[in-house]
Computed example of a mutant assay.
Amino acid sequence: MAIRLLVDTCVWLDLAKNFREQPVIGVLEDLVRRGEVELVVPQLVLDEFERNQARVIEDARRGLQSHFRLVRQAVNQFGDAERKPSLLAGLNEVDHRIGVDGDAVGELMGRIDRLLRRAPALVASDAVKQRVTERALAKRAPYHRAKNSVGDAILVEMYADVVSAAPDDTSCAFVTHNTKDFSDAEGDFRKPHVDLVHLFEAPKSAYWISMVEFLKDYSAELLGDHDFEFNYSQEARRLQEILEAEHLLFRQVWYNRHWNLRHQVETGEVQVVPNEGYSRNPYRSDQILASVWGGALAAAKRTEDEVGSENLGPWDDFEWGMINGKLSALRWILGDEWDMLDT
């Protein structure tokens, strides 16, 4: 059975304000389309949403334009001189579209509006209005605060009717961001006010103050798919991570070359000679100074202690090629030319 979901107007407006909430709207659209969620939409919510559309679109537009001004300032200050003109031109084009094209900001608003109108809106009955009056006289939440809470009280009483009419095997949920009027004022604001607790008895009814948390509980996998599709981007590595990886690869390449030389020494292909017997002119590739060789052996021991013998090979030709390629790529990122593999 589909879960019956009543969502406060403030939640819909907050979702519409933030372009990054597209995954949330996408999940709701999928769940409604698949018949897993049945939206319960009071006429009051529809009216409030429609009344606030222009204001929310304008607020979102101003917020985006302010954001782009900050981005332009950053590009002006830190951007590469050659790429700066094209970057600024692109930003100006987006800023212009935001300013003149309401659809650029109002797309989410339109999607939410279509969701709300999929089923006939519910009008408050005389019985609901009577209970609202009684709630006000008794000063029960949401009338526990010194404010006009008629709209909030209507939502409470209409939700009570939704829960009452739902079959035993059908779950209901109420989502609001208005924790001051609906939540526990003295304790955990994620729980309903003491005057409303009886409406949210598990497992038939649940109280939520976040649409994302509701969807995580109800359809975490679907939310993850939508979030990945919209928000995924390759996150750049921190400089410290790059430096640490480059250092490890440098030690691995050096150590492998050291063992090639050690093999040549052990087989007599290269001779370890004292200073007085070392030929500097002409240079001889079959000789190595004893002092240099001693330093190389000490460096190899430090490398083993630092990196760990398990990270120092041996490697086959493919693995060795990958290690050299990684070192070349990281050094290119850090400013060297391609194929810089000196150790």
Rank of each mutant, 00 (worst) to 15 (best):
G110D: 13
H67F: 13
I98A: 14
D80M: 12
S86F: 12
L91P: 04
R69G: 02
H96V: 08
V100D: 07
D101L: 11
D113W: 09
N92A: 13
R117N: 04
K84H: 00
R97L: 15
L116V: 09
A81T: 07
A119D: 12
K84G: 00
H67I: 06
R97F: 09
I112P: 00
A119I: 15
S66K: 09
G102C: 03
H96W: 14
L108K: 01
Q73H: 14
E82L: 11
D95G: 08
G106E: 14
G110E: 12
E82A: 11
L108W: 00
A89T: 06
N76P: 05
S86Q: 15
L116G: 03
D95M: 08
D113Q: 12
A89I: 14
M109R: 05
A121Q: 02
D113E: 11
A74V: 15
R114Q: 07
G99R: 11
G110K: 04
A89F: 06
I112N: 10
H67Q: 10
I98F: 03
P85W: 14
L70R: 15
R83T: 05
R118A: 00
S86E: 10
R69W: 01
D103A: 07
I112M: 06
R72K: 08
V100I: 06
A119S: 03
R72C: 13
N76E: 11
A74Q: 08
N76Q: 06
V71N: 10
D101A: 13
D113S: 10
A121V: 01
G106L: 12
D95V: 09
L88M: 05
L122T: 07
V123I: 10
E93I: 06
V75Y: 08
V94G: 07
G90V: 07
R97M: 03
F68I: 12
P120D: 05
R69E: 12
R72N: 04
G102V: 03
I112S: 06
N76D: 01
L115W: 11
D103T: 13
R118Q: 05
L115K: 09
N92M: 11
L122I: 09
Q73M: 15
L91V: 06
P85H: 08
L91F: 00
S66G: 10
L108T: 01
D103G: 04
I98P: 02
N92T: 07
A121D: 00
R111A: 04
A104G: 15
L122C: 06
E93P: 01
H96L: 15
S66A: 11
A121S: 01
R117T: 05
R114P: 00
G99W: 09
D101P: 14
L115D: 14
V75L: 15
A74F: 01
A104Y: 06
H96Q: 15
G106P: 05
S66P: 10
G90Y: 12
H96N: 08
R111T: 01
P85I: 07
F78D: 13
S66E: 14
L87W: 11
G79H: 07
E107P: 01
F68L: 11
E107H: 06
V75R: 07
H96Y: 15
